[in-house]
C-alpha cells in the first residue's frame, strides 16, 4: 500500500479538516460535527461523480455519517482525500457538518482498500455499504467490503438479468448479510396502497393476483412484488404476465376477490384504481435515489418483511446453498 494511504494519515487529515472548519466558520452558533454511522459508497467508474456528490449531500441531512466514497476505476492504485459537507438546518443558527473520505481505487485493489477501510470506520457506530452499480451482481469483487459492514445496499434495477440479480441478493442474505435492494424500496408506495385497500375492505377474499409488467423481462421490483403477494396470501396464485413494451416496470396489478380491483400505472407517478365500476387516481411519489437510500438507512436492523420475501420462512443459513 502506498505510504500516502496510511489510515493514520487520512485520519490526521480529517482532524485537520475540522480544525480548519472551526477556524474558518463565521456562523454565530459555530459548527456541530454530526456522525451517526459510516456510509461506505462503492461507486463504479461509470457513475457520475456530481450525481453522487449531490446524492450524498442530501443523504447527510437525514443521516449524518462519515462518508467513505470508494471511487472504483480500471486503473490500479489508491489515492485519497478528505472533504466535508455542511448545511444550516431551516430555522437554526448552528451549522452542521459531516465528514467524508474519498478513495480512488482500481477494482484489483479492493482487498487492499478493504484493509484500509477498517480503521477508517467511525468506531462503535453502524457501518453501511452502498454498492452503486451492477458489478456487485456479477462477481464477488465486493466480498471484502461486505464483511466490514452491518448492511449492504444494492440496486438490482441496474443488472442485466433481473432474476440473476434477485438471486444474488438472496444469496447475500443467505450468507447471513443484512442486505437491502432499492428495487424493493421503490415498492413501498405501491405496497402501502395495497395495504390501505385491505384496511378499507376493498381487497377482501382475494383468490388470485396478476402482476403485469412492461419490458422484455419483469423488473426486479416486479419479481419482489409478486413474491411479497405470495408470502402475504399463502395459497393464492400470483401470476407475472408480460404486458406492453417499454422500460422494465410494473404496469398493473389485478386483485381478484369479492370484487375485482385493478391498479394501473399509466406513468411512473400515477396510480389509477378501478373498483366496482369506479376509477380513482392517486399519486405515487417517484422517489429519487437519495430518497430511496434515506428510507433504507433508517432501517439498520432486520427488515422482517423483505426477509420473508427473500427467504420465505427459512432463516438465514437454514436454506440449502
Amino acid at each position: 500500500m502506498p505510504a500516502t494511504l496510511e489510515p493514520e494519515k487520512i485520519l490526521k487529515d480529517l482532524r485537520n479538516l475540522w480544525i480548519e472548519l472551526g477556524r474558518d466558520t463565521d456562523v454565530a452558533g459555530g459548527i456541530l460535527r454530526a456522525c451517526g454511522m459510516t456510509l461506505v459508497v462503492a461507486a463504479e467508474a461509470a457513475a457520475e461523480p456530481e450525481d453522487l456528490r449531490r446524492a450524498l449531500g442530501v443523504l447527510m441531512h437525514h443521516h449524518p455519517a462519515r462518508a467513505i466514497v470508494l471511487r472504483l476505476r480500471e486503473q490500479s492504485g489508491l489515492d485519497a482525500n478528505v472533504f466535508s459537507q455542511c448545511w444550516m438546518p431551516f430555522g437554526k443558527h448552528q451549522q452542521i457538518c459531516a465528514e467524508g473520505i474519498e478513495i480512488a481505487a482500481g477494482y484489483g485493489d479492493l482487498p487492499h482498500a478493504a484493509q484500509l477501510l477498517l480503521p477508517l470506520l467511525a468506531p462503535d457506530l453502524p457501518a453501511v455499504l452502498w454498492c452503486r452499480g451492477s458489478r456487485v451482481f456479477e462477481s464477488d469483487v465486493f466480498a471484502p467490503l461486505n464483511s466490514l459492514v452491518q448492511k449492504t445496499i444494492v440496486d438490482s434495477y441496474t443488472a442485466a438479468d433481473p432474476y440473476a440479480a434477485v438471486e444474488a441478493v438472496r444469496q447475500l442474505r443467505k450468507q447471513g448479510r443484512m442486505v437491502a435492494d432499492l428495487s424493493w424500496t421503490k415498492l413501498t408506495g405501491l405496497r402501502e396502497l395495497i395495504a390501505s385497500l385491505f384496511d378499507a375492505g376493498s381487497a377482501a377474499g382475494i383468490h388470485s393476483v396478476e402482476v403485469i409488467y412492461a419490458g422484455d423481462m419483469p423488473s426486479p421490483s416486479a419479481i419482489y412484488f409478486s413474491q411479497w403477494m405470495e408470502r402475504a396470501l399463502p395459497g393464492v396464485p400470483v401470476g407475472l404476465k408480460r404486458g406492453p413494451d417499454g422500460p422494465r416496470s410494473i404496469r398493473a396489478v389485478v386483485l381478484s376477490g369479492e370484487r375485482e380491483v385493478v391498479l394501473k400505472r399509466p406513468d411512473s407517478g400515477t396510480m389509477e384504481m378501478y373498483c366496482g365500476g369506479k376509477m380513482r387516481k392517486s399519486t405515487i411519489l417517484r422517489l429519487s435515489e437519495e430518497e430511496l437510500m434515506s428510507e433504507e438507512l433508517s432501517i439498520l436492523g432486520l427488515d422482517p418483511v423483505f426477509d420473508k420475501v427473500l427467504l420465505g420462512d427459512a432463516l438465514p443459513g437454514d436454506a440449502p446453498e
Binding site: 413501498t188 405496497r191 402501502e192 395495497i194 395495504a195 390501505s196 385491505f198 384496511d199 402475504a232 396470501l233 428510507e295 432501517i299 427488515d303 422482517p304 418483511v305
Partner: peptide, 13 residues
C-alpha cells in the same frame, strides 16, 4: 391483522 402490513416502512396515517 393486515397481511400486507409493514410497520417498519409504512408511516402511520
Amino acid at each position: 391483522n393486515n397481511p400486507f402490513a409493514d410497520p417498519l416502512r409504512f408511516d402511520r396515517r
